[in-house]
């Protein structure tokens, strides 16, 4: 066998190995989806979406958990998006390389690696007790905002970094100030990237259970929240509760709730892809 044949063989072997590696993840995902869908699909109905929690599996629904989740999401976006974006712009456009910005940068990368339950403990003490918000939607949203802020800041910076320097220079050349440049040139051309980062961060937030359990999110909430100060429950907590119950019907409920949660995440990710494509088409560097 000549050395070129051996090399071709090696090439083929690596190709097969890489394909196996790719398919492992996909197969696990498919098995997971199959199990969840075969168990839970039959249970999904309008009643399941609009019923209150119940001790009888066939009567239990996810109405309050779903609404609680929407409340949490909207508030989290409202709180974390402006702060995260502004911080990203500061660090990328205004911040000079000095001790302070270095310090902030190191902290942000560190924060991204902190286990989510730690944020829960911080949120419980700071927002729940010191600020006196209790175990309300506001406490939950503030806690989740802290959790996803590092992700938003990092993705904002990456998006802004991708804007070519020539665009900025052209803007300055026309006599624009820094603020005008950021607002009229940098932000519009990096908006797709910023939004993608935000939505991916939010998709992560809706799957979080640990920090919300720590701040005291409840399980049985028989009313729809009507203000940010109301108590709440969210889908992951309801699912967590159902899978540990002895009655088999609750496991089916949990599977159905997982399908709803997956649909939600899928939609969010779909929107992120759509926005990215749309803005990428509009701005050509």
């Amino acid at each position: 066998m000549s050395s070129s044949q051996i090399n071709k063989l090696k090439d083929l072997a690596f190709k097969i190995f890489a394909m196996i590696c790719t398919s492992v993840g996909l197969i696990v995902l498919l098995v997971l989806l199959y199990v969840v869908f075969s168990e839970g699909l039959s249970r999904i109905s309008v009643d399941f979406l609009t019923n209150l929690p119940s001790r009888v599996p066939s009567r239990a629904g996810i109405y309050t958990a779903l609404l609680g989740m929407v409340w949490i999401l909207v508030l989290t976006v409202v709180i974390s998006f402006p702060i995260g974006m502004a911080a990203g712009i500061y660090l990328q456009e205004y911040g000079r390389k000095n001790f302070l910005t270095n310090f902030i940068e190191i902290n942000i990368s560190n924060l991204a690696g902190v286990p989510s339950i730690i944020y829960g403990i911080l949120g419980l003490e700071l927002f729940g007790r010191v600020f006196g918000f209790g175990n309300s939607i506001l406490t939950g949203s503030l806690t989740l905002s802290l959790l996803i802020l590092p992700m938003i800041i990092v993705s904002t910076r990456e998006a802004i970094k991708a804007v070519p320097g020539s665009l900025r220079e052209a803007s300055y050349g026309l006599g624009a100030t820094k603020w005008q440049t950021v607002w009229n040139v940098v932000l519009p051309s990096s908006f797709g990237g910023i939004m993608t980062g935000l939505i991916l961060a939010i998709s992560r937030a809706i799957g979080e259970t640990a920090p919300l359990i720590v701040i005291g999110a409840l399980v049985y909430v028989p009313f729809a929240p009507s203000s940010p100060m109301d108590e709440f429950t969210v889908l992951p907590i309801q699912i967590f509760n159902w899978v540990t119950r002895p009655q088999a019907g609750f496991v089916t409920n949990a599977a159905s709730a997982i399908i709803i949660l997956l649909t939600f995440t899928f939609l969010m990710n779909g929107i992120a892809v759509w926005i990215r494509n749309r803005f990428n088409k509009r701005t050509k560097f």
């Binding site: 209150l52 001790r55 175990n135 409840l218 399980v219 049985y220 028989p222 009313f223």
Partner: peptide
């Protein structure tokens, strides 16, 4: 949870919440 669910049928204006 079961008691809170039944109680709601009798006293629908009292908000009972249960955590774990």
């Amino acid at each position: 949870e079961a008691v809170a669910e039944e109680f709601r049928n009798v006293e629908s204006e009292i908000r009972v919440t249960v955590g774990e």
